[in-house]
């Protein structure tokens, strides 16, 4: 398996081999992160621009740590710190990114599809760090890594995703990463927060919908709780947070319906007491902290792989020596 992608926009068209490759490389990166000196020179001299047009602390810091651990230079463009809030268009930002000559652009944007817009127009490699409701490929990959470490091979495993699937890029990327690895997904949550096509039987391959969360959890191998945005209530999609917590919140009683020891994941940040009880979030099943560490490793793996893409700008200046060095790091 050789890596040939120029961008990481979504994993919906990835092969199983590509996903496996990233997971293998991520495991190697975990070893790097376990060293006392958490730094390798794989991306020395390269520039990674973190373009965050939507507020995010966790993902941004995770990418920043990943880039720094690979010795890349990083700079950050955020919504509040740049002219985006003053009416600068995405096209203007694209021109800036192009002029800056970034090797890799990591971008978070509130509009689904925005990374495709940028990738079409810049010569840099683009990594989608979350676009609207559409995709968050590094989250999907880090969830796969986390689940695989806990469950072993995902073939035939049944994973429940509970909550606001309609507005969730995490849910979509989890589906696009876990299903090719052989897992089956059961979605659960209020019908108002589920894409209508999926609720009415037009589901993606490997995915089922079960409105009753207790039935969804019965005998499941793992559960991923999604963050509930409070503004969904204003849109009339939820009667109350209390109603949600009672009907779909992950309580200790509920998670006990899964197979013994079945893990609990959450992409964070959590609303404890709403989509997940504190006792579950911090209990023995929780892999939530593990997800954070794995996130850095997955992002390191992708940054590194993009610098090896044949003919890609992110690989420019990176001669054979650099690539060998990179391989060594990942080996």
């Amino acid at each position: 398996m050789t890596w040939s992608r120029r961008h990481v926009l979504a994993t919906d068209d990835w092969s199983r081999d590509e996903i496996e490759l990233v997971l293998q490389q991520s495991e190697a990166m975990l070893e790097v992160l376990a060293r006392p000196m958490r730094r390798t020179p794989a991306l020395r001299g390269r520039t990674v621009v973190l373009f965050f047009a939507e507020a995010s602390t966790r993902t941004r810091i995770s990418f920043e740590l990943a880039a720094k651990a690979l010795s890349a230079d990083t700079s950050i463009i955020t919504a509040s710190g740049s002219s985006i809030e003053k009416g600068e268009t995405l096209f203007d930002t694209v021109r800036t990114l192009e002029a800056l000559g970034a090797d890799i652009v990591v971008m978070r944007h509130g509009a689904a599809g925005a990374p495709y817009f940028v990738a079409e127009r810049v010569s840099s490699a683009v990594i989608n760090a979350g676009d609207g409701w559409h995709a968050h490929p590094t989250q999907g990959l880090l969830d796969a890594l986390t689940l695989r470490t806990s469950l072993g091979a995902l073939e035939g495993k049944r994973i429940v995703i509970v909550g606001d699937v309609l507005h969730s890029r995490v849910a979509r990327s989890d589906i696009h990463t876990l299903v090719p690895l052989g897992a089956r997904i059961t979605l659960s949550g209020p019908a108002t927060l589920m894409p209508s096509a999926w609720r009415c039987g037009q589901l993606p391959a490997g995915v089922a919908f079960e409105e009753d969360v207790d039935r969804a959890l019965d005998g499941a191998d793992a559960v991923i709780a999604l963050r509930l945005q409070r503004e969904r209530m204003d849109a009339g999609l939820l009667p109350s947070l209390r109603e949600y917590a009672l009907t779909w919140g992950l309580s200790e009683v509920r998670v006990a319906r899964m197979r013994p020891g079945a893990p609990v994941l959450h992409p964070g940040p959590m609303n404890e007491g709403i989509e997940i009880e504190a006792a579950v979030a911090h209990g023995p099943r929780s892999l939530i902290e593990r997800q954070v560490t794995n996130g850095v490793a997955v992002r390191m793996a992708l940054l590194h792989l993009l610098s090896t893409t044949p003919g890609a700008p992110a690989a420019r200046g990176g001669g054979e020596a650099d690539r060998r060095e990179g391989k060594e790091v990942a080996a």
Binding site: G113, D131, G132, H134, R169, P195, S196, A197, Q202, P204
Partner: peptide, 15 residues
């Protein structure tokens, strides 16, 4: 259009 494609693309749909 609200349907399977909007669900996959994460775009708000018009039913």
């Amino acid at each position: 259009h609200e349907g399977a494609v909007s669900a996959a693309l994460g775009l708000p749909g018009i039913p």
